[in-house]
Design a protein around this nucleic acid. Structure first.
Lengths: 147, 147
DNA sequence: ATACACCCTAGGGTCTAGACTAGAGTAAAG
DNA sequence: CTTTACTCTAGTCTAGACCCTAGGGTGTAT
């Protein structure tokens, strides 16, 4: 009757939000349990009912994951957004993540350089005897080999 | 009596091999269960008995781990060494690992560049409103922002 | 009315690489 | 002989991010 009854937001069931956000139904429920999504309204039958904002929240989560944040870190970021934190808090999270990423990149580049050298040194034909890769693993001259 | 009784290899208990290789006792038993170490001889009381070669094998495993190989991949490498595989098999494992490492480095560098840009754009003071990091996560202009 | 898609909960399983615990037996040193 | 250090098995726990199953109930279209 009155405009109060008007549902401005379309009501979506879990399958619809999951599909719209490109995640599985299990993932939506899992995120709810992990505190990334608030407990949604329920229909009379107990179905979870969502609106558009949940899809946006799921997209936020997906983007944050794409930048390397863990779900626990994303909870923090969402909290700062929800409750209005300070920019400094956000920067402290991203700054720590940047350092972590830098360390991982350095690790991987070290591995890459050692392994690339060994792989290049190995003829690739014949029996494993004399294979520089295996020999390096056996003898432990990895450090001397590429630094 | 005869030279047959002579133990050329010193007999080591699990604590000694673990210490010599710089891993925990748990790790040694765990590797045995995972097939990285053969089931060792046992003393009358059931103690695991090792010789020097186990330490070398543990060092092999440690070096391979340091190059980014998983335990499953290390089982393959050890098998090639034990049973005398071909160099081509070794190279196929290391080649795949190199590609994997390259992909991971690219991923991390992409994250690093996006996140570094956002982090630099954020003043770091004041409320979270208008924070470029949060806004990018909300709006999804991550791709446009740094490529 | 019935087929079919969708939803619910509770709980277990996956992968990686171990760490840690309990409860019991064994070895070496004083 | 007693203390201390070591070892055994079996099992549980961690983090991270879910997936899958069973055994139901619901909603809608034909």
């Amino acid at each position: 009757m009155s405009p109060m009854n008007t549902q401005i937001q379309p009501i979506l069931k879990i399958g619809a939000v999951a599909k719209a956000a490109g995640v599985s139904i299990d993932t939506v429920r899992f995120y709810e349990g992990r505190g990334l999504l608030p407990s949604p309204q329920r229909s009379a039958a107990g179905y979870r009912l969502y609106d558009q904002s949940t899809i946006e929240r799921l997209n936020f989560i997906g983007r944050a994951k794409g930048l390397g944040f863990t779900l626990n870190e994303i909870v923090l970021l969402l909290d700062l957004q929800d409750k209005g934190g300070r920019k400094a808090e956000v920067k402290s999270i991203t700054g720590a993540k940047l350092e972590q990423i830098d360390r991982k990149i350095e690790d991987l580049q070290r591995m890459r350089s050692v392994l690339g050298k060994l792989n290049g040194d190995c003829s690739g034909s014949g029996s494993v005897a004399g294979c520089p890769i295996i020999e390096a693993l056996v003898d432990g001259d990895l450090d001397d080999c590429c630094k």
